[in-house]
């Protein structure tokens, strides 16, 4: 699973929670450019994208690439869906702080969608 998260400690948290769920992590990518690079080149079946990557950058370009590749993804954000670009709001949202049960449900949903 590709993980994009610019906050160091949150990235560690996501890694831990995903590893509890038996997922293998690609990344975590901490910047928009690194996320795009991994999204274009690496192989993974799902992705978890932090929306706001600092310095005004977002993971929306990465989301577009994943959509073209047919890879399902969910957003992780503290903003709620208002922080997500309108054309991408059909992707599920995991809110921060992260409820491990919600994370598990969302991964199950996008994994089987």
């Amino acid at each position: 699973m590709l993980v994009v998260e610019d906050e160091l400690f949150v990235a560690m948290l996501v890694e831990d929670l995903l590893s509890d769920l038996g997922c293998e992590v690609v990344g975590p990518a901490a910047s928009a450019s690194e996320a795009v690079r991994l999204a274009e080149r690496e192989s993974f079946d799902l992705a978890l994208l932090d929306v706001n990557l600092g310095d005004g950058e977002t993971s929306f370009r990465t989301a577009e690439i994943l959509r073209e590749r047919g890879v399902a993804f969910a957003f992780v954000t503290g903003y709620g869906d208002q922080g997500v670009r309108p054309d991408l709001r059909d992707a599920p949202i995991v809110s921060k702080p992260i409820d491990p049960r919600q994370l598990a449900r969302v991964i199950d949903r996008i994994g089987n969608g």
């Binding site: 906050e7 948290l13 702080p97 992260i98």
Partner: peptide, 11 residues
């Protein structure tokens, strides 16, 4: 930032 900080504390 508050949400991120709470997630940091969670981590």
């Amino acid at each position: 930032r508050v949400k991120n900080t709470l997630a940091t504390v969670q981590s």
